[in-house]
């Protein structure tokens, strides 16, 4: 992926805003002594981990461990959300009343209740019944939540494809499933990349809510580090920056895919 001029400018503007906010705070603020030197070791450090694991080597610090977990949970949730969303989006357009009703009920139920409540229900209730790990419960909650939104995006995408495309496919003898797979969905997917990107950026940020079920994600580790060192500002700034790294990369990646798919326009 080429790191385009536009994304550099975007980063620069972000840097200026954050930098000036920091300068304002650091000079006008009361007496807060900044300890930025404590941050690097929360990302990476060289040395022993514990008495049992004493080999001196490069290890991930607490924030980096959280970063990796957030990344993992986000990637899994995005994949599952795409699968759930595609199925739900197609089901919403079904002529079958049961399929249509169930998918609509799912979308309305999930979209109209808070994610935090869903995480608790899935972890404490469903999770206890099915003996899910916190990671599995957290991923499930995020996937189910984002899946409802993705379903609506997919439905809108499918409906935006001219019905002549389906008719032409069917008139050639393709089944409904073949026409969806080869003709309608590829075109719909191209159109829904921008709203999907927005949804997945939200998902990455919303994943910070799984810290409430003691999943050691980036937010959770940040809170732990603050509790231990009291360097709240430095740590939360770093946590915010690490989220930004993930979301901004996703943003750039989707813009790249969009440009690639634009060749047939």
């Amino acid at each position: 992926m080429t790191f385009s001029k536009r994304s550099l400018i975007t980063l620069l503007i972000l840097g200026i805003i954050i930098g000036s906010a920091y300068y304002f705070f650091a000079t006008r603020g009361i007496t807060y002594i900044w300890h930025w030197e404590k941050i690097p070791e929360m990302l990476f450090y060289h040395g022993a981990k514990s008495a049992e694991d004493a080999a001196p080597r490069l290890r991930m610090g607490i924030l980096m461990i959280g970063f990796v977990l957030t990344l993992k949970i986000s990637v899994f949730s995005i994949l599952f959300a795409i699968i759930i969303g595609t199925i739900v989006g197609i089901a919403r357009l079904s002529n079958e009343p049961v399929t249509k009703g169930l998918s609509l009920a799912y979308v309305e139920l999930i979209r109209n209740t808070p994610l935090l409540v869903q995480i608790y229900i899935i972890y404490f209730f469903v999770g206890s019944l099915l003996r899910l790990s916190a990671f599995a419960a957290g991923t499930a909650a995020l996937s189910i939540f984002a899946g409802a939104y993705v379903g609506e995006i997919v439905r809108a995408g499918i409906q935006s494809i001219h019905k002549g495309q389906m008719e032409a496919s069917r008139s050639l003898g393709m089944s409904y499933a073949q026409a969806m797979r080869y003709i309608v969905l590829p075109q719909a997917f191209k159109r829904i990349i921008p709203p999907l990107a927005g949804q997945f950026i939200s998902l990455i940020k919303d994943s910070s809510l799984v810290s409430v079920i003691a999943l050691a994600d980036l937010m959770f580790q940040g809170q732990q580090a603050v509790a231990r060192t009291y360097h709240a500002f430095e740590i939360y700034f770093t946590v915010a920056f690490l989220y930004l790294v993930m979301t901004f990369t996703l943003s750039m990646a989707t813009q790249y895919i969009e440009r690639r798919l634009a060749i047939s326009d």
């Binding site: 008719e167 032409a168 050639l172 393709m174 590829p186 047939s264």
Partner: peptide
């Protein structure tokens, strides 16, 4: 019906070519 349609070619007013395919 898919087998029936294989035997009947149809040409539309608005062409309906697949825009994402060459």
């Amino acid at each position: 019906i898919n087998e029936v349609r294989e035997e009947i070619g149809m040409v539309f007013q608005l062409f309906n070519l697949f825009p994402h395919k060459t």
